[in-house]
Amino acid sequence: MSYDYAKYLRKGKLPHIWCAGCSYGIVLKSLIRAIDSLQWDKNDVAIVSGIGCASRLPGYVDFNTLHTTHGRSIAFATGLKLANPKLNVLAMGGDGDMTAIGGNHFIHACRRNLDITIFVFNNNIYGMTGAQYSPTTPKGAWATTSPYGMAENNFNITDLAIGAGATYVARTTAYHVAHCEKTMKEAFLHKGTSVVEIINSCPTGFGRKNKFKTPASMLMWMKDNAVNIEKAKNMSPEELAGKFIIGVLHKVERPEYLETYDATVGLKK
């Protein structure tokens, strides 16, 4: 046994609802290891989620957890952090939950720079409702609502977060388990809004119809197409075509919202 997850799991809730081969379980394990390595008390962590496959995650872990309305995880998380600044608040959801239904909350949380952590589980599809295309479905990819291939351009979640003003933006994948754990840990420790996009796989909704024969082949696709940011610096745009960059993409220091708010209303001189 390399690591005992039992301490942080609500074992009565397992097995989880995710399909066979869904990578969310792998990311959940990375998340548990990341929080455990920070030695935080269970009562000091709050995980807030919206609606969707990814948003079922808080149900399986034994922290303060909140399952909210579609796309509103960040709104609830903001309230939670303002009411109890001592909490370490994590808002998480899928790509549809965060960038389509909750898109407005997402950009304004980035702009506000409140000290919360946002994880976006990007599996390129709305898995739970029957594989409709989401804002992150790649061009040409099959979905039930794009049977001839996706015609629209897709969102780049990290670019969106950087543009909106997040102070820590990183990307990792479900395949790179150790990198995922390290990135999550850094995001938790960063003061200000930190956004981590985690590339995931949906074998049932996306993979089956997009030429991925097995769940493992989707993980191997991540391995083959992810380029570390340090390596990408020495690569030409032609070499990077079709690949995606993982690592810390953006990190700056900006005044945190709670401090500026307290100073503005005169709570702190």
Partner: peptide, 17 residues
């Protein structure tokens, strides 16, 4: 090597060294 334990999404396999 713990690859199976590390990558199992369902917490279903545990290797004792």
């Amino acid at each position: 090597c713990m690859q199976c334990e590390l990558r199992c999404p369902d917490f279903a396999i545990i290797v004792y060294k």
